[in-house]
Design a protein around this nucleic acid. Structure first.
Length: 133
RNA sequence: GAAGUCGGCCAGACCGUCGCGGUGCGCAAGCAUCGAGGAAAGUCCGGGCUGCACAGGGCAGGGUGCCAGAUAACGUCUGGGCGGCGCGAGCCGACGGAAAGUGCAACAGAGAACAGACCGCCGAACGGUGUUCGCGACCGCAGACACGGUUGUCACUUGGGCAGACGCGCAAGCGGAUGCCCCAAGUGCUCCAGCAGUGUCGAGGGGAGCGAACAUGCGUGGUCAGGGUGAAACGGUGCGGUAAGAGCGCACCGCGCGCGGGGUCAACGCCGCGUGGCAUGGCAAACCCCAUCCGCAGCAAGAUCAAAUAGGGGAACGAUACGGCGGCCCGUCGUGUUCCCGGGUAGAUCGCUUGAGGCACGCGGUGACGCGUGACCCAGAGGAAUGACGGUUCACGACAGGACCCGGCUUAUCGGCCGGCUUCGCAC
RNA sequence: UGGGAGAUCGUUCAACGGUAGGACAACGGACUCUGACUCCGUUUAUCUAGGUUCGAAUCCUAGUCUCCCAG
């Protein structure tokens, strides 16, 4: 039962963490989203839905819920990355079911990537320690 | 039954599983409980709250604008008045002041604001012109009378010529009255005639001018009834009146003002009485005037705690290392170590939800609303919580997501339910 | 979230409440052998919806959109 939980610690909230992902992460795009991944010690999610892309607050919230719910249900089976999902302008006219299908495909593609950890992070240091000897 | 109108309400429901935010309990695992809206929106008003400013008053600036009430307050709401729309129930209205001032009104039109005369109407008044009539100073022709002048074929005188009855003489001849003959000169106006003149009168005539009637509508005018222009043209109808017209006069209607009744001591103008011939055209979402209201900013307000780093202030320490001021010592300044203080950034906490709170009942009020009693606690996050999956069901679900709070307004919105009222149709 | 500005031809700027005007661009014509330049002419607009006024780009109300500022 605990496997499908999604505590606040599993969320990427701080600006510097977003900045790390944008600077050093690998990206994968689709029609409705752009995804970035960064190697880390646990699977965490950050969502960005620009007001410019989706003017209505209700739709912005709805998109975030769909992305979050999809992540929650398969978090245990995903690799330990930082995932940052950015919504694109076309998403404003998409139906919720289409968004759900799109985000599932995006997670598949992001999970297949082999990103490097952000420099200076704990994951980076431990990996450097492993490869050094 | 149909169409309409007003008011109120709902905003898919239920079950299971997995999740999310707050709170409580718990060492923890977890358990319990609560968890978006009628508009949470736009930010168009108002208030609370917080900080700053402030003796009082005024100016500037801005808002509001029929009256009364409700309210913490409002540009909101309720009731009433007035105006407009609708057969009606009802709906809509920035609805104070244009007899304080300044301004605006394109084009059209005669004229656009103490109006105006284009067409039309009039011919009253003044003038012009024409016709007719009357009066008529004056002129003075015909003519009459009077006066004086002048001339003459008029008159008179003188002279000459001529004629010459008659007388004397033989005769030649002389004398010679006289002269309707001729010539000349002079005088004159008594007569006659002509000429012009003066004075008085003057039928008929002419006639400056005056008056009257008629005509004309030429000039000065009268007129605002009618035509036409415009968004707008200075009360309406009728009769009288007039040159034609006109509130010029009158009647009725309308309007203004005053008084009384009514209405809430109101707006208002329903009724009555009196009065005024009508003044005061429109625009104030033009400036403005009047009345009334408003300090400024906003929870990222504001308050508390407060790391690292840098810098500030203070105290203590070193037998005194280095450097500056001194030739040197003392002294002093800077560099050092420790401690304290204050400002304050990141960060954290408070503000943060018990409130002009909603609910039920009762009472007061036409109503907005108020009062009383009872029981209730109903989001409080900080990148920001409500979703997913499965099932059942229906009318197949619109607009849409809190960010200090509340009262309104405005805008968006699939549909559905309830009630009041109106109009029409049918049946009884 | 709070505060503040603005919207006029395709573009950029004008316009006391009275016919929306330039400049560039576009189109047509003239000039030229052709093009450019130049000259002439034409087309095209008041963000939307109501209201005030005889009349609104202008005044008022509501909405839409854009931009700026604080953080």
């Amino acid at each position: 039962m605990g496997a499908a939980r999604f505590p606040r610690a599993a969320r990427i909230l701080a600006k510097h963490e977003f900045d790390d992902a944008f600077r050093a992460g690998l990206s994968a795009g689709s029609k409705l989203f752009r995804g970035l991944v960064l190697a880390a010690d646990s699977a965490r999610l950050g969502i960005t839905v620009p007001k410019r892309a989706v003017p209505l607050a209700t739709r912005r919230n709805l998109i975030k819920r769909i992305v979050r719910e999809a992540f929650r249900l398969r978090r245990a089976s995903l690799p330990c990355f930082h995932y940052v999902v950015v919504a694109r302008g076309e998403i404003a006219t998409a139906t919720p079911t289409a968004v759900r299908a799109e985000i599932e495909k995006l997670y598949d593609r992001l999970a297949a990537l082999k990103p490097a950890p952000a420099p200076g992070t704990i994951a980076d240091l431990s990996r450097a320690a492993n490869t050094a000897p």
